[in-house]
Design a protein around this nucleic acid. Structure first.
Lengths: 166, 166
DNA sequence: AGTGAAAGTACAGCTGA
DNA sequence: TCAGCTGTACTTTCACT
């Protein structure tokens, strides 16, 4: 993957599939300006080499009665590597935790959680997260509303940078 | 959408497409145990009615030289609704800001940002975010590493709840 | 079930080191 | 000349009625 160089068409493919991951290959080929077979080969290569790591439908959490989204800031007692990994493993096994990122600064981890309602989140918080080994502090913030939620990277920024450096 | 009831097959479809959004319709139909034509009708309906709001390829940000991920906690001076909306509009126009959620508690917004490197994030921070109208405080945390990053909702939790309530 | 379109394959031609 | 990519032609599979 490190040895693989992207050209402008590859970047267009990535941008298009990031915007619409279920686009047909012929539509994609038309948009990026090549014919379908080479376009499909490029997509396969981008997948194999790791530029594309998956495709997901975005499902409406509210409609499925997951009404609550919470960010949890977690501080640990020990920041030894083995203890960090132990906490990450816990997170992987908690289905309500959708994202877990290790941070610098005062807080060690930020978790993005979903739950059907406040009470089921509270029971997760008190009986799972707060009682987990090595957890020193948890600060939670409810999401009131979402204003923006885009996946991945801004390709317009990428293209501008490439234009400058050429 | 409120009037639409999901059955078990619909939920399976959502779970499968959340896991692999580029699956062909025949593969999807096989997995959920029905034939292809009704499966496709169900998918179209789920899209139209708003259970599925989009499909995205997951692109590898690191490989595209977006090396830096940052969470920014933003406090505003005024929480009047018009001022909240003004800030949300700003966020929509900042390409480096990928997510913007309004929170309860001491902090007003959490932003998830990406950038090619630390210096370009710093220049965004100092010349855009910190100087924006109504912004009172910004606390940033660099993502050291990601441990978990799943989209959407945990369907196993959903199914367990439905089993209980029946 | 059946039609029309898309995915995927094989092969030959073009282009640049 | 050779590697790599492209497009045309063709078969198989899928989408859609």
């Amino acid at each position: 993957m490190s040895g693989h160089k992207l050209d402008e068409i590859d970047r267009k493919i990535l941008a298009e599939l990031q915007a619409d991951g279920r686009m047909t290959n012929v539509e994609l080929a038309k948009r990026v300006g090549i014919s379908a077979p080479p376009c499909l080969r490029r997509v396969r290569t981008l997948e194999e080499v790791g530029y594309i790591t998956g495709y997901h439908a975005v499902v409406n959490a509210r409609a499925l009665h997951f009404e609550v989204q919470v960010y949890a800031m977690v501080g640990l007692s020990s920041q030894a590597e083995s203890d960090l990994q132990a906490f990450e493993t816990l997170c992987l096994n908690w289905p309500l935790v959708r994202e877990c990122h290790m941070l610098n600064g005062e807080v060690d981890f930020i978790l993005k959680c979903v739950a059907p309602d406040l009470s089921s989140f509270q029971s997760f918080l008190t009986s799972e997260l707060l009682t987990a080994a090595n957890v020193a502090s948890v600060k939670t913030s409810l999401v009131i509303r979402g204003a923006k939620d885009l996946p991945g990277v801004p390709f317009d920024v990428l293209e501008k940078r490439l234009a400058k450096n050429s």
